[in-house]
Structures are given as C-alpha cells and as structure tokens.
Write a protein that binds this DNA or RNA. Structure first.
Lengths: 199, 199
DNA sequence: CATGTTCTAGGACAATTGACCTAGCGATGT
DNA sequence: ACATCGCTAGGTCAATTGTCCTAGAACATG
C-alpha cells in the first residue's frame, strides 16, 4: 500500500470523525486508531492538525462538485435537480438526526474557534449556492436566482438543525415536501403580491 | 460579595464564553480569568464542568421563559408576538453572524459530543416550539399549530446558520421580511391548494 | 476576644493534547 | 550483496486540560 493510499485513508477517517464528533474533539490518536496507524507516524503525512482539516475540506469540495455535476448529467430538468438537493435531507436523515449537516456544523464550529479555515468551510456553502442559483436561472428566474438559492439553502440548514434537536423523521419529510411545493410555485409566473417567493 | 453573587458571575461569564467560543473550547481557566477568580477556587462553586453547563442551560431556560412571557404581556396580537420572535434575528444580527444561534450551536455541539445534557439543550428549542404553537392556536390554527411553529423555528435556524457562513446582513433582513409575509398569509383562510402553509 | 463557617488562593495531580525526533523496516534498483 | 529511500513505530516534549487538596483569609456569631 502506497503513501497516497494511506493519506487517503487518513483523510477519509478524519472526514468521518470530524463530522461525527467535531473537529476539536477529534484527536490525532482517534484518527490514527481508526486507520490503524501509530500516532507518531502521522507527522510524516500531515505536519499539523490544520493540514488534515484543509485536506478534509478539499475532499468535501471535490465530493460536492462531483455530486452536483452528477445531478446535472442525470437530470435535464432544473427543478428536478433542485428536488434532488432537497431530498438529500431525507436520504441522509439518520446521520443528520445524529450529527447535523456536515457543512453547517463545521462552519459553526470553525466560526466559534475563529479558525483560519472558516472561510474554506463556508466555500462549501458557496458551491451549493452558486449551483442552485444556476438552476433557478435556467428556470427563468435570473433576477432573483441568488436570493432563491439562498432561500432553499437556508431551509435545508434549518431542517437539519431542528432534526438534530428533535430527531423527528416525520418533520424532515414534511418540510422537504413543503420545499417541493414551494419550488413548484416558483416555476409558475409570480403574481406581484405573491408572498411565496423569498425576495 | 456573597457566594451566590460569585456563582452568578461565573454562570454569566460561562454563558457568554460557551456561546462565543463553544463549550469544549472554553476551559476553567478561561472562565476564571474572565470573572477574576483563581482557577482552583472553582471547585468550591462547581465540582465539574458539566455542572457549569447545567447551570448555564438553566439560566438560558429562565431567560427564554422571561422573554416569551414579556412578549405575551407587551402584545395582545399573536401574530405581532411571532413577528417579535422573527425579528430577534435582526436585533442580534451582529452576534449571530459571528457565533450563530446560541441554542442551535449548543445543540449541535452537544450532539457531536454525545453529551448527557444534549436533551436539556434541545429543551430550549421546545420552549420556543410550544410558545409559537400556542400563538398559532390563538390565530385559529389549532389543527397544524405545532407544524407551523416548527416551520418558523426551522426558518430562524436556517437564517442563523447561513448568516454565520456568509455574514450577509441583507440576507437576514430579506428572509425575516419573507417570514413576516409568510406569517401574514397564515392568518388568512387557507385555500386547499395553497403551498404556503408547511403542512 | 474566641469560635465556627464561608469563601478564596495557589498549587499539585494524572491524563491528554499537538508536535516532533530518531531508529529501523522493507521494497526497489544497481 | 549493497545502498537508497519511502514509510513506519515508538517514544519524548512542553503545554494544557479537568479535577482535587489544603492552608488560611474574611466574616458573622457567641
């Protein structure tokens, strides 16, 4: 097994442990034990803990990009793509009820730690934001595409946060269904006094 | 200065530090330094760190109850009371953009730590949930009062989460305005195909 | 003043942390 | 067979953590 394999295993384990237990609560020993390496050996692959964090964020950026691209390739309809985004909440409900949204909770933790990688974690949100805005543009909502993108991103974050607190699976399904209803209403020509659109 | 004063100072400092820097990232030394006490003296007032956390949560429960009651006393209109809830996001925007929602971020952190007080922190959400549901009942929405309460609570959490990531003040104001529009739509008799109501 | 309780200071404790070093294994190429 | 180099194991290091103890100051009560 080459070094790049070991490095990948480390990043995979760190990714999972950072998500499940938090960045600060995860120690070198935790990751090493998970991968099956000695603690001291870590210094060869990663000089500092922040370096591991950077690698984890980079991995998540790649995975997010791949997921968004796969949706674009698999579905021609922008509204169908946005529905896929919303339904991630249902698909990952068990993990979300246990540990929250991987992006949101990492951003929150790094904000409290005033960590240098705070902006890098927030960039993960930007990936979703820009992708969603492009879908709304394709739906003919160029004028408020970014506001609509932020709105549905906001909803998914709110659902994730309350899911962790109340651990209510029905709540997730209900709110995702409501997001789909809201989305369908956005595809129709909006009347001037329509309160359904967020901006 | 009596012991109860010192105890109160400790809990106040811990409350602020837990919010700004997180529970785990805040040490005894941090709180002691903030209050102006010696580290060792802490053991007289609080035997364990979890005991301080319990006191902080209890303080937040009291403060939340007082806030909700003051809204009920100050405003006769339930919809006006709910608007007050939504506008907390605007009033506390600076702190929220820096450190997120005090309730949501604490729940998330304790969930990751699998901490015993996880349920106690989630109880803070229940205070808002039940209070909001009572307001919707007063608006004649007994059937789906709890779902409506969860919906607006979800929105406030989503706004707080994205505010921390993007630190966009306009986004907060825009989404709060949209929450108010949504709220107004809830007060009108709902048509069967109305997608505005969350359930 | 004497006595007892409440509160405080300062330190000690083991455990854990991130960071770092060095000796050596094992495969590869000469 | 020998040397090189990527990789690993185990240990050391100072710093910090939560926890805990003890001596004594401050204070009220008798």
């Amino acid at each position: 097994m080459g070094a790049s394999d070991t490095r990948r295993h480390i990043v995979e384990a760190a990714d999972r442990l950072f998500y499940e237990n938090g960045f600060e609560a995860t120690s070198f020993a935790d990751i090493a034990g998970d991968v099956g390496l000695s603690r001291g050996n870590f210094y060869y692959h990663f000089k500092t803990k922040d370096e591991i964090l950077d690698a984890v964020i980079a991995r998540r950026v790649s995975a997010t990009r791949a997921m968004l691209e796969s949706w674009e390739e698999a579905m021609p309809s922008p509204s169908e793509r946005i529905r896929s985004f919303a339904n991630v909440l249902v698909a990952n409900r068990t993990k979300i009820m246990a540990h929250g949204c991987p992006v949101g909770t990492l951003c929150n933790e790094l904000a409290k730690l005033d960590h240098a990688a705070r902006g890098d974690a927030a960039f993960l949100f930007s990936l979703f934001r820009d992708w969603l805005a492009r879908q709304f543009c394709a739906l003919g909502r160029e004028a408020d595409a970014d506001a609509l993108a932020l709105h549905i991103l906001m909803r998914s974050q709110g659902v994730a946060a309350l899911s962790t607190a109340f651990r209510d699976e029905d709540f997730i399904r209900r709110e995702v269904a409501d997001m789909e209803n809201w989305l369908q209403a956005q595809c129709l020509p909006a009347s001037p006094s329509d309160s359904r659109k967020p901006a």
